[in-house]
Design a protein around this nucleic acid. Structure first.
Lengths: 207, 207
DNA sequence: TACGCTATGTATAAAGT
DNA sequence: TACTTTATACATAGCGT
């Protein structure tokens, strides 16, 4: 069966178009009806099609007249205010999608940095190809990772109830359970094993 | 997360109702827009809600006016003809559901008869509790089963390419591959092993 | 031509942030 | 409160009858 992804455009094939019309009109009317019921709002729909001489409406001709009357009472200028029309609808949609794209780009970049970090953990990192921003972000990333690690360590320490362990066993753990390790010290820890500290000072100066 | 099944009734919780309204209104407008595009029809929707002083419409105030105007031109009597309104919509729905129930009942009955048939294949069938209709249906069922079996046999015979088999092996198969076995002979075959043939004549007489 | 089926796409109820 | 996420319910395209 393998259903296609619906090209949002006029359907050229007459039979398909009619079939789609029938199905979607039914679905649409159901939706209007549900919205009215669930949210207790006044809503109507009018659909003109070549398949019926009369328009198909919801909720009923009378109901449509009542709602339309209410609509007509407003001056046109008022009607245009804060109203959902095609243009606004599309613009909002575009805005949302742009936002999402931005997020995705950021996510991608973060992943890339992570890959860089973990891919080089055991060897020496090659920082030559990175921009200043990349390096700063990498620094933040390391900080965040260390914070996460320490947090996790504390959780595990609590859960396993270190206090009840023998002195000999507990002795192996202390470095990780002595209270919280803040961001500054975490960074220091990271750069103590690298040439990074000097670089970071430069970067901070540029910010 | 486990989404509930949507009780089609007014949502009492204010926050939920508003959330649902926003989502569904958006979905509804999208649907109207899609119907217009895909099928090239004139359609509009007007929604009044307590969340906006102005009604929310599709496609635009101007477009709505145009469509509404067209609608208002018709005499009310004409509008009621062949039009989709709430009542017709519900009646059609009820009709469809009734049809489906009918089908399901039939399906259930068929299954029951099948169970009866196969559950008694090796022993003697107890036909005492059955109605005349049950017996007739059971007869049809047996016919159908035999037809299916013969059809399947032929398919298998073709697939395994009997012609290429040795004469010794092929000799075991002939009874099932000698052309098509029609309904009448299938029935005969079935009843040759049973007292059923007599019963069937009686039943046919009653029909 | 219209209707039923079913795999797949889409809408959305809840819960999280 | 509004936006995002996730699991599920719901709508429906393409087929077959």
């Amino acid at each position: 069966m393998t259903r296609k992804k619906v090209k949002l455009a006029y359907i050229n094939n007459d039979a398909s178009r009619k079939a789609t019309y029938k199905k979607r009109k039914k679905g649409l009317i159901k939706k209007v009806s549900e919205l009215s019921t669930l949210c207790g709002v006044d809503a109507c729909a009018i659909i003109y099609s070549p398949y019926n001489t009369q328009p198909e409406v919801y909720p009923s001709p009378g109901g449509v007249h009542r709602i339309v009357k209410k609509f007509k009472k407003m001056p046109e200028i008022e009607q245009s205010k804060k109203m959902m029309n095609q243009e606004v609808f599309l613009k909002q949609k575009i805005g949302k999608v742009s936002e999402q794209m931005k997020r995705l780009k950021k996510e991608n970049r973060d992943r890339e940095l992570n890959r860089l970090l973990y891919g080089n953990l055991s060897g020496k990192m090659n920082l030559q190809g990175l921009t200043v921003k990349d390096l700063n972000d990498l620094t933040s990333l390391i900080d965040q990772n260390l914070k996460d690690i320490n947090k996790r360590m504390e959780e595990i320490a609590k859960k396993t109830k270190i206090a009840r362990m023998t002195a000999a066993t507990a002795a192996k753990v202390p470095p990780f359970i002595n209270g919280e390790v803040n961001a500054a010290s975490a960074t220091t820890m990271a750069y103590d094993n690298d040439r990074g500290r000097g670089i970071r000072r430069d970067l901070n100066a540029q910010n």
